[in-house]
């Protein structure tokens, strides 16, 4: 499996933990709107930007700061697990 696809899948997995069936659509929107690439083209260098935008967008969906922190932490863990 290409590394980019794995990264995308990992991001979707994290997102689904918080947004359920809407998780994949959420990540696809963040990638295509803010990074301007096809979701399957997501590379390691795009991850910090994705984490920032996805965390910002996620914060608009809940007032629970623990959830926002948890989401950001889990998204960041995708980058650290690559190293």
């Amino acid at each position: 499996m290409p590394a980019t696809t794995t990264l995308y899948k990992k991001a979707v997995e994290v997102s689904e933990e918080y947004l359920g069936p809407a998780g994949e659509r959420f990540i696809r929107r963040q990638i295509s709107t803010h990074i301007g690439i096809e979701p399957e083209e997501l590379g390691g260098r795009d991850l910090p930007k994705l984490v920032n935008w996805a965390s910002l967008a996620f914060a608009l969906l809940t007032d629970n700061s623990h959830e926002v922190k948890g989401f950001t932490r889990d998204m960041l863990s995708i980058s650290s697990s690559r190293k």
Binding site: E17, Y18, L19, G20, P21, A22
Partner: peptide, 9 residues
């Protein structure tokens, strides 16, 4: 049964 704390809420 589904995942997603925000969605479930």
């Amino acid at each position: 049964r589904i995942k997603g704390t925000v969605y479930r809420n």
